[in-house]
Amino acid sequence: MSLSASAPIQAPTRRRRSSRVREALLGYSLLAPAFIVLGVFGYYPLYRLVHFALYRPNRFGNGEVYVGPSNISSVLADEEFLDGLWISVKYLLYTVPTGLVIGMLLALLSHRRLRGIKVFQAIFSSTVATSVAVASVVFFGLVNPKIGKFGDVSFISLAKADSALRGVALTSIWQNVGLTFVIVLAGLQAVPDAVIEAARVDGFGPLRRLFRVTLPLISPTLLFLIVILMIFGFQSFAPMEILTHGGPAGATETLVFKIFQRRAPGQISEGSVMALGLFGLTFVVTLLQLTILNKRVHYGE
């Protein structure tokens, strides 16, 4: 091959390679901020969590002792963890279905063209914009046994161990209603009017229309909501902290609450294992929901 023939081929190759490197550098530099934020606030803490779970501070507090995976299994099998898990699960059962159903009903009721409906939509969605702490204080004023207006309603009484969790759950339900409302309403607005009209002409009454057409069409939205509400439920902390401090007699000590209690240097190892357990649990539950429900969910065309 002659030199004159190969030269014009080589030149663009070199240029292409250098431009590719430049492009890659640009790409990574654009990704860098996200990587740094994730690294500092996500992966590093996770690494520390695993570290804390595997090591324990020594007696003098100036070094660490390796305890190994046996630490993890012993903590996860311990009654404290299982107790917290059971309370967390009960908390989910109290908060997720109720908030979901009420929020959905409000969304269905206000999904119509009426003068002034926007006012109601704003009111119903306002609980999303309220901080958990503020909401908890509001409910403190409502259900506290000493000062609360509804402090003596026995079903939600914070003073008794068997009803306190229900009282605490009210805060989460109230907040879930707003979140569900906003997301379901958006889902409803994405359902084509013509499909609902076709169902009317086809003879479907309001209930059949709801269960056979509307709900299947917003099922991806509902799946998303169930996943997110369960994660929120597992992570709930402020209502217990503000309303009951985990009491009475530990009846409202959810998993997150128990983890928070174990933040002292001597207990941080146990708390870290619990946090890892909660992480694993949330991960598995979400994965299960996505795989099981995905088969029943319709994602449109």
Partner: peptide, 30 residues
């Protein structure tokens, strides 16, 4: 539903989550 009319929409307005069979069957259900 009490008018005994049927309608074809510009967008067809089929039920996307149902099979063709279920779509055609829908007006017969009620």
């Amino acid at each position: 539903r009490d008018r005994d009319v049927a309608m074809v929409f510009q967008s067809y307005a089929l039920y996307p989550h149902m099979t063709v069979y279920k779509n055609i069957e829908a007006p017969l259900l009620t």
